[in-house]
Each structure stands twice: as structure tokens, then as C-alpha cells.
Amino acid sequence: MSAALTGLRPEAAHRPRTRLRAVPTWLLIAPALLYMGVVFLLPLANTAWVSFSDPMPGLHNYIEVLTTPAYLRIYRNTTLMALLVTGICIVMAYPLALYIARAGGAVGAVLLAATGLSFWISFLVRTYAWTVILGSRGPVSQVARWMGYDPPPVLLFTSAASIIGMTHILLPFMVLSIYVVLARIDPVLLRAASGLGATRGQTFRQVVLPLSMPGIISGSLLVFVFCLGFYVTPALIGSPRDLMVASLIATQIEDLLAFGTASAMAMLLLGATLLMLAVYDRALGLANLMK
């Protein structure tokens, strides 16, 4: 309280502004560091601590998770699901991003806005929308019936529904990541390639694609990591057999108050993600491509 008062002393208010320049850089970024620390590192450290200490000190939480076949299967399925969704997102987002980048101008702006628009709709709402679309009386089933498939193929409550739902929610991230990079590619490079004898296909494969790799990579990381943490969408529209790690963790905490187990699961998920990044980095030279 006294600090607040001294801050108001008239002479303090008239202190020359140049003083600010004397502040060392580390002090200027201190608030940001503090924020990162409080918002990110502290909870992480706490999770790590809990994973080794709750309910008693030791590795038992990790041993439990790593020796339960069902958990390992859930980890594997979650990772596969995330990889699949990431792959589908790349394949679907790339042409769209390319089209938006090429269209440019008003058309591009409208398409870009449309892509970003879905960010404004709660993903719960979007997930529920899929239960209607894929539902047994939804449009997809109706069309199937008209085409003579009666009963129509089951779509809702399958892994495919999960994948469709997650892809739909995460696609905009991929589109924007790739678009940002594509839009930065100098069109003169494409002319140059063509002038030097490259067909459109060659220009795409040898110039556009490699130059857009950073966008694909950052989009993939974003989508992949989001996928690992997803559980509402698979729980609402996915197969009853699909259980995501995040859902598993939620149950440990919310139903069982097993904070230690949940923390160990979270740390292992983080570890697995970092491991995949490391492998990816070794294989593709992440740091190089991100330049």
C-alpha cells in the first residue's frame, strides 16, 4: 500500500523519462517471463511433482501406467488418431490454402475470413452439429437411403465420425498455417521456375511444396498436439471403443481423484509428444525448415 502511495509523490511523477532507457533488458522482459513461468512452467512443475509424489513418493504412478496394457493401447490409439487427423488435415488444407493464396484480393480475403469464421463457433456446438449431420436421420443418411442403401451405413459413433469431427475443428488451424507461408512465397519464383523449363507440376513439387514446408510443419504440430488433448469430440460422436488419453486423464481426476496417476499420464503424453518432435527433427531438420 505504501508503495502505491510513494508512486504518487509529485516528484516521482516528474522523474525524467530517460530513466526508462537505463532499465536493463532483462527487467523489461521480466513480466513476460513471469507470466510464462506462472501460466506454463509452474503448473507443469506441479504436475511433474504430483506424478512422483501422490499418493506416496516413488515411481509407482509411472509403473502403473506403463504396465497396464489398456493404457498403452489408449496411448497408441490416441497417437494414431492424432497422426491420421493431422494427415487428413494436411491433404485437405493444402489445396484450400493454395487456392486462397492464389486467389488473393477480395476472393482470398472472403475465403480466409470464412475459414477463420468457424473459430467463433464453440467447438461443442460444431461437434453437436456433426451428431445431426451424421445421425441416423441426418442428411447423409437420407441421401444414402435415396441411393438405395437401406438401412444407411452407420456413421455416428464410429472412429470415422471422430476423425471427421476433429478434422473439421482443426482444419482451420492447418489452412491458416499453410496459407501464411504460401502467401509469403514470391510469385517471381514461380515465374522463374516456369521460365527455366519447369512444368506446373514440377514447379509445385520442387519450389512451392518445399517452400511451404514450414507452414505444413507448424500446422501439423498445432493439429497433432491439439488432437492429443482432444476428448470431447471423440466422446460425443466417436466409437464407444475409442478412448483418448485426455479422456482417460479426466476420468482419473474427476471420478477417481487419482491425481498421481493422472499426472503421470499427462507427463507421459508430454514425453511422447516431445519424443515424436525429436524424431521428426532428426528426420526433417525442424530447426532448419523453420527458418
Binding site: 519464383l189 527455366l196 512444368t199 520442387q206
Partner: peptide
């Protein structure tokens, strides 16, 4: 790409992701 004309652009238009050798080899590679 079917005219077989070499062109040098004002800002060089080198492919940033290729080495010098790869840039020069590009027309032959395609």
C-alpha cells in the same frame, strides 16, 4: 516452360531452399 528461353529476373529470383549448385542444376533437372 516450353519456349526454352533463359531469363534473369531483376531481383534474381533464386530458390531460397536450394543450394547454389541445385539452383543452377534446376533447369536441367526439370
Amino acid at each position: 516452360h516450353e519456349r526454352n528461353i533463359g531469363m534473369m529476373f531483376q531481383n534474381y529470383a533464386l530458390f531460397p531452399h536450394m543450394t547454389v549448385a541445385q539452383n543452377i542444376g534446376f533447369p536441367l533437372k526439370v
